[in-house]
């Protein structure tokens, strides 16, 4: 139960920061950190795929409602949730994965986590900017935006992960 509460609090904080702060950064239109995806990345490894997609969808929808973007974020988040299980199997070794069935990401190696997060963050951003422009003639601009925003988002994701983990490790 406390685990569920922790995820809920994380979701709420991420949404608040996303809507009030990160939505308005937009450095040169290139660096737009969509940090709320951290919630989808950090959901327990054993989360059923259907539930995962539904939660990602609702999270994205919440961001959409507050940023007046229709269903863009819902679309990108659901896509991330859809490919997450396959990507976990690829990036996190099978043995570790089997052991980790019922535990959180806390035990995943930092390198593995970065690889895991990097692709999903990039997919998220790519989907977002693609559906935003709905015009692949400016694919270069889409790729540029997706790349730089992913970089910034990934930086924040990794930072957040260590902020979250530290208190548990120190005692």
């Amino acid at each position: 139960m406390s685990e569920v509460l922790k995820h809920l609090v994380r979701l709420l904080l991420l949404l608040i920061f996303q809507i009030t702060v990160f939505n308005h950064i937009g450095l040169h239109g290139l660096f737009n950190p969509f940090i709320y995806i951290f919630f989808v990345l950090m959901l327990p490894l054993a989360t059923p795929a259907g539930l995962l997609m539904l939660m990602a969808f609702l999270t994205g929808l919440a961001v959409d409602i507050f940023s007046n973007t229709g269903g863009m974020h819902a679309f990108a988040s659901t896509l991330v949730a859809f490919i997450r299980p396959f990507w976990i199997k690829t990036t996190i070794p099978r043995t570790a994965y089997d052991e980790l069935q019922n535990i959180s990401f806390r035990e995943v190696e930092p390198g593995q986590f970065v690889t895991y997060a990097a692709l999903l963050v990039f997919v998220h951003n790519l989907a977002l900017y693609s559906i935003e422009s709905l015009d692949f003639s400016d694919i270069f601009v889409i790729l540029m935006k997706a790349f730089f925003s992913s970089l910034l988002t990934l930086l924040l994701v990794v930072a957040l992960r260590y902020i979250e983990i530290r208190p548990r490790r120190t005692p």
Partner: peptide
């Protein structure tokens, strides 16, 4: 998955 993405797309296009 397709259902959710469909809803998201409809919302986007409506927007």
């Amino acid at each position: 998955f397709l259902l959710l993405e469909g809803i998201a797309l409809v919302l986007t296009v409506q927007n």
